[in-house]
Write a protein that binds this DNA or RNA. Structure first.
Lengths: 321, 321
DNA sequence: CCCATCGATACCTACGAGGTATCGCTCATG
DNA sequence: CATGAGCGATACCTCGTAGGTATCGATGGG
């Protein structure tokens, strides 16, 4: 039996079009996002619908909504586009490596696990045969995306917040969580807290982070987009936050940490795509294994990091060597 | 920050072209497979290379080989194309379901776990709200592919043979393995065997199954493409096989089963793509859970199955209801 | 040494992706 | 209830490019 060619009709271009429309629920805005005019977009979508034999969108002249099939195609289509993008990035990276400029891109959440990460990178750098590691700091939850679309080779994820299905992982650290509160607030007198003590605190409404679409959820709390900003807002007595224990080391003097006893334990893991059997990734994984059984304080050098939002301009990276 | 459109260049068409060439390592044959002429294929590939900024293939006028980058793109590209195809199939299936013709496609290895599967399907069919299940019998190892490219919603896989990374799974059965030998063969006098007793048995060389590319590996054993054929060859004293314990029930009288004590245990699992939170799949998963704690012999009806090779013509399905 | 094999190049054609103009429907507004 | 703004669909045109044919040039076998 001979292996045949893939027989499906869909082109990735059409899928990009559909995903744009499905996310915007508006042909005009989607067309703008795609840098094209609205009519060809309308045509492409209805052609796609005819070829799939499935209604994807319900349009009136006032609104666009997804059908069942459309919802499925949005989810599956995003995954497929991520995979396409990943193929492209990983190939480019492999070509660079073959051309003598090997490198790893590690994605981690901005403002998390600084200590741990620095130790890991130092230990890896000490490995003979280790290569340059570029660190990309991204918004909470963005790491997973970068790993899925190939912009990163490895990521530091936090269970149970990030979805690690489909990745190989190595546990790095499990820890409890603390509440970070303004110094002097009534709650700071407590030895420890429970989650329900922290919901609906009148004068400290939970902060609101932007979603992946850039919009903020509704609510009374302040809108935030960085941790420094959040800490400042806490110290000003405007909000509070619940975070893993290890972030204590990064707190300012004007905020107070109180353990939250019933918050879920947070496990920091290092994750990579399963078939990525590159030596470098394997080495890094092995390093992280070794790290857990190592004496605690190795000599530390400062670690330079590059920041990168989820936007498209390539993430600049600082050498780790 | 606004969610932007996917900015990559690669079209799935180009990727299909590359995968075809990379698998054939021959532009002419690849072009045939793609139903096109060779020159535009050559052009498309070199254009792809220029746009990726990466050499993918090393060509002489006598041979084509993959570079490092090409190897990466072959692996990643296959995954991406599977994802594209999956998006298409799952969308079509969702549309059918929305149109009142819901159905599940379950992939399983031909000639494996008949008992277990029949029980599972019966139990599920007894569930109120259960829907039609089409069973696709495929060549060993093909189930995984069907699940990844969306032609199946659920699959019966066998650890450690099949790769379940990226799937949600539910364990069904763990069992040892047996050697199936011609009746009367010297080895059948043994109470049990070890793996090394079975390698290099002069008169019973291991059978050779076709790989995914349709070619047979080299070796002394006979070429086989079905289990019936294999059993016949065993009964003729030409070969042997090692298989999970449960296949005993399907053996003919002229072959003998002997336990292999050091063969790895085989775990039969039911698997599905993780985000596929359709009610039907969830029900089936729950049914399989219940099954493990159930009394053994429920009344059984015969189960009709459709066969399907890995080739493209749509798998026909027989209703389960 | 010559021919078979195979990928690359040159050149042409035609399909379809994408643009502009405009229509037709729906709802908010006074 | 009339009007206009907003939005998707339709009509029509243009041009880029995917794909075909013919042929070249390199390489290795007989």
């Amino acid at each position: 039996m001979v292996l045949l060619a893939y027989p499906f009709l869909m082109e990735s271009r059409e899928l990009r079009y559909f995903v744009a429309v499905a996310e915007e629920l508006h042909f005009g805005r989607a067309a703008q996002r795609l840098n094209m005019a609205q009519p060809p977009l309308s045509r492409a979508i209805s052609l796609l619908e005819r070829r799939l034999g499935a209604e994807l969108l319900l349009r009136t002249s006032r609104s666009v909504t997804l059908t069942e099939a459309g919802t499925v195609l949005l989810r599956e289509g995003r995954a497929a586009l991520d995979a396409m993008e990943a193929a492209e990035h990983r190939t480019r990276r492999a070509a660079l490596a073959a051309a003598g400029r090997p490198g790893l891109v590690l994605a981690t959440k901005a403002g998390a696990s600084g200590e741990l990460l620095a130790k890991l990178l130092d230990a890896y750098a000490a490995d003979p045969g280790s290569i340059r590691v570029d660190v990309v700091l991204c918004a909470p939850g963005e790491q997973e995306r970068l790993l899925r679309n190939g912009r990163a080779d490895v990521a530091i994820l936090h269970q149970p917040f990030d979805d690690t299905t489909g990745f190989d992982t190595e546990e790095l650290l499990t820890e409890g969580q603390i509440a970070v509160l303004p110094a002097g607030h009534a709650l700071t007198t407590r030895e420890n807290l429970r989650l329900k003590d922290l919901t609906d605190v009148e004068d400290l409404p939970a902060p609101r982070w932007p979603g992946p679409d850039g919009t903020y959820p509704a609510g009374p709390g302040p809108e935030v987009h960085s941790h420094t900003q959040l800490l400042q807002l806490i110290s000003l007595g405007r909000t509070l936050m619940v975070a893993p224990d290890s972030c204590r080391s990064q707190l300012r003097d004007d905020v107070v940490a109180v353990p939250v006893t019933d918050a879920p334990e947070v496990t920091t893991v290092i994750a990579w795509p399963p078939q990525s059997r590159s030596r470098a990734v394997a080495d890094l994984g092995r390093t992280s294994l070794r790290l857990r059984s190592l004496p605690d304080q190795a000599p530390r050098r400062p670690v330079m990091m590059a920041t990168a939002g989820p936007a498209w301009p390539r993430a600049a990276g600082a050498p780790q060597g």
